[in-house]
Design a protein around this nucleic acid. Sequence first.
DNA 1: GAAGTAGCTGTAAGCGCTTACATATTAAGT
DNA 2: ACTTAATATGTAAGCGCTTACAGCTACTTC
Lengths: 340, 340
Amino acid sequence: MNIYDISKKTGVSIATVSRVINGSASVSEKTRAKVLAAIEESGYTPNVFARGLGLNTMKTIGIMCADSSDPYLARAVYYIEQDLRKNNYDSLLLCTGYDHDVKVKCMDQLLSKRVDAVILVGSNYVEFNDEMNDYIRNAAATVPVMLVNGVLNAPNIYSTLCDDRAAIYEVTTSFINNGRKKLVYLYNSRSYSGMKKLGGFTDALKDAGIPIKKDRIVFIDSHNVSVQGAKKIVSDLAKKGVKFDGIIAADDIISVGVLKYAKESGLSIPDDLFVAGYNNFDISECCEPELTSVDNKLEVLCRHCVSTLMSVFAEDKSVPKRTVFSAEIVERATTDFKIK
Amino acid sequence: MNIYDISKKTGVSIATVSRVINGSASVSEKTRAKVLAAIEESGYTPNVFARGLGLNTMKTIGIMCADSSDPYLARAVYYIEQDLRKNNYDSLLLCTGYDHDVKVKCMDQLLSKRVDAVILVGSNYVEFNDEMNDYIRNAAATVPVMLVNGVLNAPNIYSTLCDDRAAIYEVTTSFINNGRKKLVYLYNSRSYSGMKKLGGFTDALKDAGIPIKKDRIVFIDSHNVSVQGAKKIVSDLAKKGVKFDGIIAADDIISVGVLKYAKESGLSIPDDLFVAGYNNFDISECCEPELTSVDNKLEVLCRHCVSTLMSVFAEDKSVPKRTVFSAEIVERATTDFKIK
DNA sequence: GAAGTAGCTGTAAGCGCTTACATATTAAGT
DNA sequence: ACTTAATATGTAAGCGCTTACAGCTACTTC
């Protein structure tokens, strides 16, 4: 069952059938109707490979994310896939992990599949070390590259992101305004966005005239990013004699570890300790007490990313290269911000 | 840059280049090396569309899941994508939602993309009403269909699943053996697997000689499957005068709602109330007290599904049509099973 | 040394579609 | 009725690859 069958069935040439399929103009209404009826009746679907050969596109977008089982990234993938499909694009998903070489390899793989664009989901793709971003710039020479939560200034690269720095700055300032001066920051990513967040924390301290101490800024490597891992790290910190009355974490799961530590060591939250997380996951509502967190507007970012991509495809010249949204602080029971 | 360029560069015909690319035999070592070197040097990648036209496959598998932002399904997608890629297959992801018509449409879309197989992830694809499963059987006429957590007996359909019925039976029996007789079962899916779980619950009651009461078996529709939604449902149940000393839920998130209700109404867990969930999500470790749950071996299922698919591709005649794994009950602080 | 054989390699015919260009049809203007 | 332009359709040349088949070379074997 191919285009020739439809051609025979209707008595028109395959060119006309093709025109109908592609919605091209200059086909008479009568012919169009006849062809569509034949297609409908026979259940014919054009062969995508042949189509791809001719059009050099298969209406497929490559989505790269480090780990689609991460609730944050999973949600992003979901939103993106939904919106892409609404626009008649399919999604080729690659979970790359956090290793740079794997990312590069995956990018090659996507490009070799001739995807129409690549969407990089998550702040971990744009490295702070800019040389490592060459693979993204190279890709952009072939297809548009969309960054969700990452920034890279180069032709054909578009960014949609959330002002993470401002959000952490605000959280930190709220802690300070409520008398919490012994602050600890726990972070798990040295990506562009990870460093921005960290900057938000240190800037807030600076602006409040609080000295920045190295041992209060703790990096947690990926295999310790779990409830138990984070709990142990806070516990170790306390054992080392570090005092704290407020802990801000770059990811909710880390904060939950902090809560578990607090419970175990009899700390009362929020009286003895303020805790805030980031991402506003489901878990921030599941834990006890419920967690103050930063909602970084993932759905907004993702939808905007897709709509931007569609504008790029439409060769809309006024497409913004970078769009920044504001995060929203969702206060729950682990903090008590009297002063705003 | 195409196969002709490589042909020119090496002085062999395109047929030979093609043979090298496809690893076909009967190419001399010398020629092979020369061609590979040229490919390497020029960074040539075969055009997948042309390849697809010739071979009628693009080494792409369609993955359908209702909602990749659901932590359970997200993890499944992750495992499957990983394993598929290890086997040089790419993943075309479609999040279909729970609406039957959308599922059917998505299946068509996948088939029209000429995927090499379809993997349906999640128990919601196989409907208890068997007529509704025709779309799956039809698909299986074209490509192998793999079910993760679903069963359908038809040619070219392969199932990998977990014995959910046995798991719920065991949990329920453990509740009963510990003196909990006023049990409530909360479920959110009438899929094949959902009905099996429910059967596990009722069978356990039957075998223990406990009468089954309708108002203790509560269906929660999808928009109430959330912490707050579940909390309200339990609260309403209590208001209606239903007494309970044990609640078993078909999903962890529902159980967390139960915990929130218990806290609010001053119930002590596990003394006043046993609670068990299902799926053993991250959240079961985040909530307070930590949740007893059923680990249904998702990773095992997914990896087995992919390896089965590879066997199907290899035309291995001894591929099992159905493989059942046992779930594992992970006891945490919301129950206290003295007797096993 | 002729004939047969095994191992490589090349030729060319598709795969099913798109589209530039040529041609046929129709409508409009005089 | 006759030209001109606009519209509708057909023809055929690709797109870049795979692969059946044919052809060539270099060995055997008697």
